[in-house]
Computed example of a mutant assay.
Amino acid sequence: MKKLLNTLYVTTEGAALRKDGENLVAEVEGAERARVPFHMLGSVVAFGPVLVSPALMGACAANGISLVLLDRVGRFQARVEGPVAGNVLLRRAQYAASEAPDDIVRSLVMGKVANQRSVLLRHLRDHGEGDGQEPAGAISAVCERLARILQRLAAGLTGLDHLRGAEGEAAQLYFSVFGHLVRSPDPEIRFLGRSRRPPLDPVNAVLSFLYTLLTHDCRSAAESVGLDPAVGFLHRDRPGRPSLALDLMEELRPVLADRLALSLLNRRQLRARDFETRDGGGVLLTEEGRRTVLTAWQERKREERLHPFLDEKAPLGLVPYLQAQFLSRHLRGDLDAYPPWFWK
């Protein structure tokens, strides 16, 4: 359990939440683990099987505290709230901002490009010239070009097409050298360039699976604060597409997904036997491979990192929910700008 900003996140399965006077009390196996006054809470987010007493639900509704229920892997299930929650005003602000989203898009793209560059720089620090076969010079050159893109963004690059162009240019540069970061001993596990539907090699199969998991988390995060996950800023609206969830995941996927994929492959937790090739050339994870990735994903989300804006440590799994809160606060006018999450 962890309280960040004005939200209590309950991630312990089997925890019980109850009302005691004007306080929320969280218990695990009958022992009190947390006590938070209602006046200090804006929302409660519960992951997995968590018991919530009827008295607490009524108190949360009466005090304007939203109660968000997610399943074990973070998929949105329900939100319980009282009659006055302000979500209509928040969504109106979101829709209005989507008509002129340059500032938000610039922040999202800066976060993504900076984190892509950090992934490459971390590889250079960890492996350097490697065994002489690794083109460290090519990776360094891409890092320099990404730094120039960041300079353009920081200088106030405007225009949605230009911002999307900068994001696309950075992605092309990043994935042009991503294959050099894969150090699996299996010759079948190679990165042949980004491919999506279907993924055409094992590396893309892992990336696509992790991106799907991250999209679910970002969609749940958007819904947990009352945002409309279908209306984004960087991604264009399209029926059935969670554009805002895709926006939120952009700055997070280099660290949460790409780094995890590299770790699983380079540490030989995933081998060639964990993939299968379907008719048409698509490559997918086997059932055992998916279990390996899911286990590592849950472990990864428990790791804590210092949040640069909060200046407080938070589990990586809660970062999408924090960023959704920051976005909602910016849309409400409480923050001058949306603060990206930079990985260091």
Rank of each mutant, 00 (worst) to 15 (best):
V88C: 11
N63H: 14
L153D: 00
V73C: 06
V142C: 00
D131H: 03
L67P: 00
D126V: 12
V68P: 06
G42F: 04
G111D: 02
V88Y: 12
R92L: 10
L153E: 01
L146S: 11
A136W: 04
L157S: 06
I65W: 00
S43K: 10
Q94F: 07
H39M: 12
E129D: 06
G58T: 04
A78Q: 13
R35A: 12
G82Q: 09
P101T: 09
E129T: 11
D71R: 09
A147N: 06
M40L: 10
V88P: 15
I65C: 03
L89I: 02
V28W: 11
F38W: 13
L153R: 00
A26E: 03
G137W: 03
R152C: 01
V28Y: 12
R152S: 09
H39D: 11
G58C: 01
S53C: 07
K112A: 07
M110R: 14
A26C: 13
R79S: 08
P37V: 00
G30W: 05
F47A: 03
R92K: 11
Q77G: 04
R148N: 04
Q116H: 15
D71Q: 10
E134I: 15
I104S: 02
L56V: 03
S140N: 04
A96C: 03
H127M: 13
A55L: 05
L157I: 06
G74A: 00
C143T: 14
N115D: 00
R152K: 09
A46H: 05
V88W: 14
E99K: 12
L157Q: 07
G74V: 02
Q151N: 00
R92M: 10
V109C: 06
V113Q: 00
R92E: 07
N115L: 05
R35H: 14
L120W: 00
M57E: 10
A93D: 01
T158N: 14
V44Y: 01
L153S: 01
G64M: 02
R75V: 05
E32L: 08
V119G: 06
D102G: 11
